[in-house]
């Protein structure tokens, strides 16, 4: 059974069409890598699914919660409900600055899931240990490296036990030497059986961990297959050109 169903999703910013009729079914356990040139709506797609952006048209269904667009008066409740079943990891971490790492992870457990402090702390500590930051639990975000902040952000998302996790370029804001520590955590999370949608420019990583790869261009899904098929035998010229360019970037002597 599909854990996430998207039908005919349309989104534009003023006159600029960003999502042009997206249909997508995500099964439990899927790890879907979303690739494509910049400005093709990869991030917007993720942000539209949990309604941080408001698409003009379409339907989104997560578990038993269904949201039809455009949003009507009174649909706030189902939007909140849908968000409770999804988790999001942002490019810029977006940790709560005035809370320690531990409090950041506890926040949603207390306010959204209504757990008491002790219970929340226990669960949060488990997640913080999962990302290997137990000794940093009392530190504030501003005292941590970008990689550590992103790991806390991942722990914060996992603590909510979401049905599906969206990762929006989780390593793009990091210094190169910090990328691998975050990717290792994401890999670990993937192995724990979570369902994930991952937007990233780390092609090798996507190729390695995803079960399915989607290529977005001009607000449409133009490739949708296993990583091997999409990366090695892309059906469209657009995807071929894109991967060719990425290939060139990886071989420095080509332009030296």
């Amino acid at each position: 059974m599909a854990i996430l169903t998207i039908r005919n999703l349309h989104k534009k910013f003023k006159n600029n069409v960003v999502l042009d009729g997206i249909d997508l079914d995500v099964e439990k356990g899927d790890i879907i890598g979303i690739v494509g040139p910049s400005g093709t709506g990869k991030s917007t797609l993720l942000r539209s699914i949990n309604l941080l952006e408001k698409p003009e048209e379409g339907e989104i269904e997560v578990g038993d919660t269904k949201v039809s667009l455009p949003l009507k008066h009174g649909s706030k409740k189902s939007v909140t409900e849908l968000r409770r079943h999804t988790g999001m990891v942002f490019q810029r971490f977006c940790l709560f600055e005035h809370k320690t790492a531990l409090e950041n992870v506890m926040e949603g457990l207390i306010t959204v899931q209504g757990k008491n402090k002790k219970e929340a702390e226990e669960l949060a500590l488990k997640e913080i240990e999962n990302v290997g930051l137990l000794e940093w639990k009392n530190h504030y975000p501003r005292h941590m490296s970008g990689g550590q902040q992103q790991r806390v952000a991942i722990a914060r998302t996992l603590a909510m036990k979401p049905d599906i996790i969206f990762l929006d370029e989780p390593t793009s804001a990091l210094d190169p030497e910090l990328v691998s520590e975050v990717l290792n955590i994401i890999k670990k999370v993937a192995e724990q059986g979570y369902t994930m949608l991952l937007v990233s420019h780390e092609m090798d990583f996507i190729r390695k961990i995803s079960t399915r790869v989607i290529f977005l261009d001009g607000g449409k899904i133009i490739e949708d297959d296993t990583p091997v098929e999409v990366f090695e035998h892309p059906r469209t010229q657009r995807a071929r050109d894109f991967f060719h360019k990425m290939q060139i970037l990886r071989e420095p002597d080509y332009y030296l």
């Binding site: 909140t80 709560f96 926040e107």
Partner: peptide, 11 residues
């Protein structure tokens, strides 16, 4: 971003 993150949690 923090406000968005809180929204995304379902707050």
């Amino acid at each position: 971003g923090e406000i968005e993150a809180a929204y995304a949690m379902g707050m």
